[in-house]
Structure formats: structure tokens, C-alpha cells
Design a protein around this nucleic acid. Structure first.
Length: 432
RNA sequence: UCCCCGAUAGCUCAAUGGUAGAGCAUCCGGCUGUUAACCGGAGGGUUGUAGGUUCGAGCCCUACUCGGGGAGCCA
């Protein structure tokens, strides 16, 4: 048998005879000539089978293959401008693993409900294929970014005894004789780890039981949470900015083809360069007050339409800092220079996808933290270990959380975050 | 929890209150350069469920079920 290779590497084998292993993406026959679009996971290539070039039984069998039939084809690689992708395989022999008919997902249009029910098969289609490869590149870029900067990956637990922030609706699970919850954030644990290791990040699944049915929400999503000891809000904002630039650059460098499959406007991504616009809550409030469509009231958090108004003003992510403490979490440090405000930042992605990052400098004073826990009426006994971080060597520190699926949805230009997850979990959907 | 929209062939959709159709998929036949190929033929239906109005309901009314995207809430 000849060299086994992949569609991705075909360009290195022009003129050679190779074997490809994959599935039929589409087949069309011209009688004595079959065109097999072969999908192998790394890409799709056109394979041409002339009747006179192969055994008669093989030619006949190939002509009957339905979509997603599995097979191996052997033939000569040639550069061919008429073929999608620029290369094609002139088939000399082959082996059929399984001949399929009736594959449910045809090359025509389908609705969201149908495709989500077929997600296990839908992943084989071009758009999910491209999206998953970009998602992978985002994850790689993130890990490389933190590794290069000396951050240590420390994973937070998924079972937690109580709500981290005390606000969200959590999923309850039976945990032997007691009730536990699925984590809604690894941040408090990241803070503990940062006091041990300096610079850390957690990266894992996060769960929210909120009954949110929008294109920005999943009940299970991946969140990246870096945390740094000896850091201020400015350090946190600089880190977020550098990281987003690094992610976008890595995707542009390694997944251009996939972005083109998704028909993404590359110039929108090429524009993602430092510096990002930075405005305060007060400045954002002023912008909204002058906007005819906004119903924003000063003192409130921004609603989704407000975020869209703000983010579409810029060609790169906008960083909004220093919100009123009443609308933010208990652990954020008050801003000494702005009474009533906290040292926090939200990063809003352009093109209407909304908030992709939320971060802050953390309250590091024991008494202030105790007071905030009481104001928010949180169960003090659950926070004793967290308060220990303020008792023993407290330092200024901070970090942020980035929603992976929202970030991928923004980079890919997706309509809905569910497409950024291989098997999305939503309010009314838990299968497949 | 609230608001709006939807449900007809495997899929995407059509059908003025009057005989349920098309394209794709499937099966059969044709074609040596197709790009979601094309051409000819065939099979495929309890119109989401339950009631109501009507001579007659896919279509009008009510309830329910399932789903969609938006609000709130959140990332």
C-alpha cells in the first residue's frame, strides 16, 4: 500500500501515489466518471474516478455510495485548478468500509431544531468542522499565552458547597448525605491558588441554571479565569487586552481557511490590535443618555441592547470600567478615587455578541470584605476559607473570567453561542 | 416568569375554507470534468395533540405539547 496521508498534507505529495481514509462528503457521477468529495477530518478533497482506471466492481460500488459512506482511496495527487482546494486525487484503487444510504443531513438547508437534534452528525458538516477547529485554536492560544507569561494552570473544583457569588441560580446535585452545586465560577479558588503560586489560571466547565433563552446563553460553558497576586485593575485590563490580541492573531495565523469556510470578514479580525478603547461606566452612561433607543437609567447595569449600542461604536473590543458597586459582585474592591464605584472591567466584543470578559481587582481588606459579605447577606460560614486569604498575607490582586463560547462566537462571526460548543447544553436541550 | 413567532413527506418549504404539492434525500435508468451537477422515471402523508365552528378545516377558534429568539437574570 502507498503512503497514507491526510487532505491537509496533500500539497506535499503532488505527483506521488497516496492513500486517503475518510468519508463521502458528496458524490456526483457523470456515467463513466465519478467525482467523490472525500472528507477525512482535516479537510475535503475531490477524488476523480474514471471507469477505465479502476476495477469494474469498484467503479460500480463507488457509484452507489451515499453521503458519509466510509472508504479508503488510493491514487495520484495532482494540482488541479478545477478542483475545490486546488488538488485532486486520480483514483486507481480503493476499499469501501461501509456503503451508506439515507444520511439525514443533506447538502441543502436545515433548521436549527433538526440540526441540534443531529449534533452528533452535524459536527461532520463544514461549518461545525471549521468552528471546532477555531475553538481548538483559541484554546491553544490561551494556554500558550499563559504558559509564556509564567502562569500556572490550577483547576478549580466543579462540585462546590455553595454559590461563589451568591446570586446566580445553580444546579443542585446529590453529594452523598448533603447537597452540592455545580460551579458557576472558579474564581474564589483561583484567588487561593494565586496566593500560593503567584500567577495562575483555571480553565474548565461552568454551569448556570438561569432560564435564559437567548443566542448568548448556554447552561454549561467553558470559562477561563486568570488571577494574579500583586495586581491592580490596570494590570487586569492590560492582561485582557494582550490576551485577546494574542488569541485573534493565533487564529488568523493558523485557521484562515476555516474562517473563510465561515465566510468571516477577515478585516474585522485584523483590526483587533492594541490599544482597545477604554471608557468608564460614567462615560458609557453619558453615551447611552444621548442615544435615542436606549432606556438605560443611571445606576443600573447595562442591558443587552445597551451593550450592543456601546460595542458597535468601536471596531475592537471596548473595556468599560468602574461600575456602581450595587450592580456588581461582593468581592470587587471599591475605587478610592470614585465613591460608590468598584474597580471592575467588562470587555464587550464588537458586532453585538456582548460581554466576553468580566474582571476586577479584588477586595483585599479583611474588614471591608466581611462588611460586603454581610451586606449581600451571604452565608458567612462558607466564606471562612476565603477570608483566610485576607488574614494571612493579603495583597492587591485581581483577574477576570472569559466565556470561551462567546469568544469563539465573536471570532467566528456566529449567530448563536450554541454553535461554538460541540454539544451545547441549553434550557430546553440536553441531547445528544 | 413574561412577550412574540412557529409546527404539512426523512429535510427545506408551498397549498383563497373546496381532490395535500415542489425541490432535496431514497430507489431505478442515462451521461468522461462535476462544483448544492444535470436529464427521465418511481415510491413516500393520521398536516404536533385534543376539542370546537362549518355542508366541508392544513387553513378559522380554544386549550395543551414541543421548539425558536427576545426580556428579566446572567458570562
Amino acid at each position: 500500500m502507498s503512503t497514507v496521508t491526510t487532505v491537509e498534507r496533500l500539497g506535499r505529495h503532488v505527483g506521488e501515489t497516496v492513500t486517503l481514509k475518510g468519508w463521502v462528503y458528496n458524490l456526483s457521477s457523470k456515467g463513466k466518471l465519478h467525482f467523490v468529495q472525500l472528507r477525512d477530518g482535516t479537510g475535503i478533497v475531490q477524488c476523480v474516478v474514471f471507469k477505465n482506471d479502476v476495477a469494474p466492481e469498484l467503479f460500480e460500488a463507488l457509484g452507489k455510495l451515499g453521503q458519509e459512506s466510509s472508504l479508503e482511496l488510493e491514487g495520484a495527487v495532482k494540482a488541479e485548478p478545477r478542483a475545490p482546494g486546488g488538488f485532486e486525487l486520480s483514483v486507481k484503487s480503493g476499499k469501501i468500509h461501509q456503503s451508506v444510504d439515507g444520511y439525514p443531513i443533506t447538502p441543502k438547508e436545515h433548521g436549527a431544531d433538526f440540526l441540534l437534534n443531529q449534533r452528533h452528525l452535524w459536527l461532520r458538516s463544514k461549518r461545525p468542522w471549521a468552528t471546532m477547529r477555531i475553538r481548538d485554536a483559541v484554546i491553544t492560544a490561551v494556554r500558550r499565552f499563559y504558559d509564556e507569561r509564567g502562569f500556572v494552570c490550577v483547576d478549580a473544583p466543579i462540585f462546590t458547597p455553595n454559590a461563589c457569588e451568591g446570586t446566580s441560580t445553580l444546579f443542585e446535585v446529590e453529594y452523598f448525605e448533603q447537597t452540592a452545586y455545580l460551579t458557576q465560577s472558579g474564581q474564589l479558588y483561583a484567588e487561593a491558588a494565586a496566593m500560593a503560586l503567584g500567577k495562575v489560571y483555571t480553565f474548565g466547565p461552568t454551569f448556570r441554571a438561569e432560564k435564559s433563552k437567548t443566542r448568548r446563553h448556554l447552561t454549561e460553558f467553558w470559562m477561563l479565569e486568570p488571577e494574579m497576586a500583586f495586581a491592580t485593575l490596570d494590570d487586569v485590563m492590560n492582561l485582557a487586552e494582550d490576551m485577546l490580541c494574542a488569541i485573534v492573531q493565533h487564529v488568523l495565523a493558523t485557521r484562515k481557511n476555516e474562517l473563510q469556510v465561515l465566510e468571516r470578514d477577515l478585516s474585522k479580525l485584523e483590526a483587533i490590535q492594541k490599544p482597545f478603547p477604554r471608557i468608564t461606566y460614567d462615560e458609557a452612561a453619558k453615551i447611552l443618555a444621548e442615544h435615542p433607543e436606549s432606556t438605560f437609567k443611571y445606576g443600573d447595569d447595562f442591558g443587552a441592547p445597551d451593550e450592543t449600542i456601546l460595542s458597535t461604536r468601536y471596531d475592537r473590543p471596548v473595556m468599560v470600567s468602574r461600575y456602581p458597586e450595587a450592580v456588581k459582585a461582593f468581592y470587587m474592591k471599591r475605587d478610592a478615587a470614585n465613591p460608590g464605584k468598584v474597580l471592575c472591567v467588562d470587555v464587550l466584543a464588537p458586532e453585538g455578541i456582548g460581554e466576553i470578559i468580566g474582571g476586577s481587582q479584588r477586595e483585599d481588606d479583611l474588614d471591608a470584605m466581611l462588611a460586603r459579605i454581610r451586606e449581600h447577606k451571604l452565608p458567612e460560614e462558607f466564606f471562612q476559607w476565603y477570608l483566610d486569604l485576607r488574614r494571612y498575607g493579603s495583597v492587591p490582586h485581581g483577574g477576570f473570567g472569559m466565556g470561551l463560547e462567546r469568544t469563539v462566537a465573536w471570532i467566528c462571526g456566529l449567530e448563536h453561542v450554541r454553535e461554538a460548543s460541540p454539544f451545547p447544553r441549553m434550557m430546553y436541550r440536553i441531547t445528544p
